[in-house]
Design a protein around this nucleic acid. Structure first.
Lengths: 131, 131
DNA sequence: CAAAATGATACCCATATGGTATCATTGTGT
DNA sequence: ACACAATGATACCATATGGGTATCATTTTG
């Protein structure tokens, strides 16, 4: 089981790099070595974060990406939601239809509790913490 | 993200069914309707649990599977380990080699903490709880 | 010896994942 | 005006994974 896919892993590295840098605006080209990610892939990832409102972007010469919030206001949860969708431990929707005894399912209830606590854990990890 | 794959989901249903039944030995054929899983698939799954020591099995006419321990001694963690491998949130092994700054990675440390707490949560859910 | 069960494998299909390529658009500097 | 440097948007591809089926071997009972 993977909590984070590569997109999120790469995004963390990139955002930490950006938080460390003094310059506000950073191009993909200038961070790709330190982040260690193929450039086109990193671009795609950062574009998604821009769409999610976590980054600013400026096109053209001298452009690049910049954090749209302070590092302590960007959490692991934000990145995961933007790049791999909302956290849902119990995929009790099989074949497009709900499991028959969805309402009474004890497993589901237990998982929801676990899910909630896990969610607040990942909301507690910020880019600031990882710099 | 999925915490449980279908194997585990199906296994939970099957083991709960077995825990509820009075008979010790139960054949796949006799539980497939209530569990709602294709027979050959359920067989494969229960075979894995047998290999993991969670079930007994008896071949031949009148045979089947039986819980190898009391329901309160079988946890969600046992099923997950047997059917989808050990819980590891941080797959920091990409392309067969470790991430360069494995030792100093702050993200890794945070994830390990989360992983530990998650692990004890799933160790706290037993088949008994779900009957 | 037939029937009923599991053991062990091999296979298949659909989807998700990781990654690349291409062209359009926008901004800067000369 | 124009070249160049950057992101925006898509389309594409290769591989891995997940969910499921099929087949044959083995064991036990009656």
């Amino acid at each position: 089981m993977k909590l984070l896919n590569r997109d999120v892993d790469y995004a963390v590295r990139a955002l930490v790099f950006m938080a460390r840098a003094n310059k506000p605006m950073i191009s993909v080209a200038s961070m790709k070595e330190s982040v260690g990610v193929p450039r086109p892939f990193l671009r795609k990832t950062l574009q998604k974060l821009h769409q999610a409102g976590l980054l600013h972007s400026i096109k053209g010469k001298g452009g690049g990406f910049a954090l749209a919030r302070r590092p302590e206001a960007i959490t692991l949860s934000h990145l995961m939601t933007a790049l791999q969708g909302p956290l849902k431990l119990n995929d009790c929707v099989f074949r497009k239809k709900l499991c028959a005894n969805h309402d009474t399912c004890l497993l589901r209830r237990r998982l929801e509790g676990i899910e909630g606590r896990l969610r607040s854990e990942i909301e507690g990890v910020t880019i600031r913490d990882l710099v």
